[in-house]
Design a protein around this nucleic acid. Structure first.
Lengths: 232, 232
DNA sequence: ATTATTATTTGTCAAAATGACATTTAATAA
DNA sequence: TTATTAAATGTCATTTTGACAAATAATAAT
């Protein structure tokens, strides 16, 4: 087989910044690293890109292995390729951010996988440049969520408007006016009101809504300015 | 030296999608590939990531080598990593899109570098997955340019409003109303009007403007909706 | 000198979107 | 029956938007 002569070869990994929402707070899924160096330290979910898979494939595989979940929302963040970011040997890592409905994950046997959820603001120290990856991913999540309805990926099938608003407030670290928010949300036409109410949060109860998936897919590109005074 | 045992290693390259604007049309900078396979075919400007450089470093080095220019606006696009995208051996490529003031480049000795400008819509067939990279880069350029003032990176120090508008129209492949466009542009406060006029395009002449670089840097994040009926 | 030409520049107005603000409502608990 | 609590909804002034055409400045032609 011909090769490009004399060029160095590197390991290529993927690392996933996995966000979830428990109904109140934004969370981050971490695992204890299973190999040296830094074994047993907290780390993003990651792994090496195999010979017959693309980085996207690798990210999906690694996510399934660590959570049992398939079909997770995944988006390429960027590549991390500083020469010495991994002390053992040169490894470039493709960062992905993933959005999970946390309840789907909790439905899995949590012993089978040793990933753990942390509040994003109370995460432990992470290995290598993983803290930078998380910071970049939070920024990108804010950016995208301001323009596209990706946050629904973190909600269960049925959710309430107050829940949705809390999620937006968490992601953007801001308070949003209830009246303006619900006006904006309903103007998108993406939500379908259900009969049922969620009585857990109040005496009155909040109506459940579900996503209009047809419109969601059709309108994924146009969902501007859900955050007041948006400054990207 | 310790290594991660048994993991495959790959070549890692960078490829730059270089956009320029000649005052009327959007252009793409290509080179004839200098090595087998596909030698002498048209290709994006690219190269392998060296042992002591990051992909960002490599992109800057490769751009300087092929154009003589430094300090070019560069942004990571995404990674291209399908297992067989390069027929010789597995190579992952980090795509970058670059924005150049085409006049700076023309000031260089054009014989010294054999890169050539093509109209983006009349580019030759490209090697490997480079056509896909160009398509992705155009999409991302539209996206970013709708929200951030990056298109100024393609203009000379002095430029006119009609030129600026033509650039926006080229990038977005649309027509924009002159009155609304100049209202929007001036509301950003990013432009400083000069005394001088550009007489080349008309009898009346169009006033030159320059970028207020302080405001440009300060407001890089907030420059929304320059394209009417924006649908991202 | 006057007029014609041509791209540049600027103005209006109605409609829609935005942001700030407080009250009503529904269900349960007291 | 009343108190409590979160959910749901309405108003209004301001700003932004999009659609539309007339005026201007310089040169070329007569």
């Amino acid at each position: 087989m011909i090769e490009y002569s004399g060029q160095p070869h590197y390991l290529v990994a993927v690392d996933c910044i996995v966000f979830g929402f428990d109904g109140e707070r934004l969370k981050l899924l971490l695992v204890k690293r299973g190999l040296e160096p830094e074994i047993n330290k907290w780390s993003l979910i990651g792994g090496f890109v195999g010979a017959n898979e693309s980085p996207d494939d690798a990210a999906n595989r690694v996510l399934k292995k660590n959570t049992g979940l398939e079909g997770i929302y995944l988006e390429q963040l960027q590549i991390y390729g500083e020469p010495h970011r991994d002390p053992i040997e040169r490894t470039l890592s493709v960062g992905y951010f993933a959005l999970i409905d946390i309840h789907k994950y909790e439905a899995q046997l949590s012993d089978e996988y040793h990933a753990e959820w942390f509040l994003v603001n109370e995460s432990p120290k992470l290995i290598f440049d993983h803290a930078q990856m998380v910071a970049d991913a939070r920024k990108k999540l804010r950016y995208k969520a301001a323009l596209h309805p990706i946050l629904f990926e973190m909600l269960p099938k049925k959710f309430t408007i107050p829940q949705l608003q809390m999620l937006f407030e968490e992601v953007n670290d801001t308070k949003i006016d209830t009246r303006n928010f619900s006006r904006k949300i309903s103007s998108t036409g993406l939500l379908i009101k259900l009969e049922e109410k969620d009585k857990s949060g109040s005496k009155k109860g909040a109506f459940y809504f579900k996503l209009d998936k047809k419109k969601y897919k059709a309108n994924f590109q146009a969902f501007l300015n859900l955050i007041p005074n948006l400054k990207l």
